[in-house]
């Protein structure tokens, strides 16, 4: 799940700004032949976008930062542009996770690193994902399964686990392309296509079914930074869309593996009862 956080402590903010300033002295913009493309969807994230870009830029010396600004009215695009990011701007909101597809479309790097405009993740916490892809992984996931220390799991946490089980990757637990940060190889992007990245669980299912190398690379506990959003009439539409995405992903698994997703029926002789 995408996590939202706004830095509020002034002391923290000032230190982040100092870092970004020193950074601008070193790099004025995106590298012409980037190794890493960092894709940052942003929607009204004026408060965090500068720091997010600054951290993203420190990931590698050959780096481009692509900011997909959509549905914003708070000057996010202007701030992103002043930080030297390549800004792709839409007046209307693109839709949940659609920014990832748009950003991936125009990325030039061999490695695509996805994060979010509302999260300021230190570069040191982003590099392991890049390193995992460099080391041969096609998809390097955030090794974070969400809150699992309760007996009744959140539907989204449950969906992520169930999908991985049906994909015969229970070792991935609740790790999912739904969560940032994560990184893709160019090969993964070519295999999956950029459009599918708008439905991260479907992309994950396809990746595993296509035999791409997918691994939990590094843990960034984004859940702790999460801000609880208001719920409209008791139901959370985000939760619904994510569960629906997982069901679509499962239908993909069933399409490819048959109605038992390739799992054995044991010694059942079903014809004994009609």
């Amino acid at each position: 799940m995408k996590r939202r956080v706004k830095r509020s402590r002034p002391s923290r903010r000032s230190s982040v700004r100092r870092v970004s300033r020193s950074h601008k002295a070193l790099y004025t913009g995106n590298h012409p032949e980037p190794l890493v493309s960092v894709i940052i969807p942003a929607m009204n994230e004026a408060g965090t976008i500068a720091a997010a870009i600054a951290e993203a830029r420190k990931v590698h010396s050959r780096c481009e930062v692509i900011v997909v600004v959509n549905g914003s009215s708070d000057g996010t695009a202007e701030i992103a542009a002043s930080c030297g990011g390549r800004v792709i701007s839409y007046v209307e909101p693109l839709g949940h996770d659609v920014g990832r597809s748009v950003g991936a479309e125009s990325a030039k790097g061999d490695i695509l690193l996805f994060t979010d405009g509302d999260l300021v993740i230190p570069a040191s916490q982003l590099r392991p994902f890049m390193a995992a892809v460099k080391g041969g992984a096609d998809i390097a996931l955030n090794d974070y399964s969400g809150p699992v220390h309760r007996s009744r799991p959140h539907p989204v946490v449950l969906s992520k686990h169930a999908l991985n089980i049906l994909l015969r990757r229970p070792d991935l637990k609740g790790c999912s392309m739904t969560a940032v940060p994560h990184a893709l190889s160019r090969r993964a992007l070519d295999t999956l296509g950029s459009g599918i990245l708008s439905s991260p669980p479907v992309a994950q299912a396809k990746a595993i079914l296509e035999g791409l190398k997918i691994e939990a690379a590094h843990k960034v506990p984004v859940g702790r930074m999460n801000v609880i959003r208001p719920k409209a009439d008791g139901t959370d539409p985000l939760q619904q869309i994510i569960v629906a995405d997982h069901l679509r992903a499962i239908s993909l698994v069933l399409e490819s593996g048959g109605e038992r997703a390739g799992f054995s029926d044991g010694t059942r002789r079903r014809e004994m009862v009609r």
Binding site: N70, P93, L94, G95, H96, D97, S198, P237, L238, I241
Partner: peptide, 8 residues
């Protein structure tokens, strides 16, 4: 998806 993003 678009409406959801806007809602959020």
């Amino acid at each position: 998806r678009r409406l959801l993003a806007a809602w959020r």
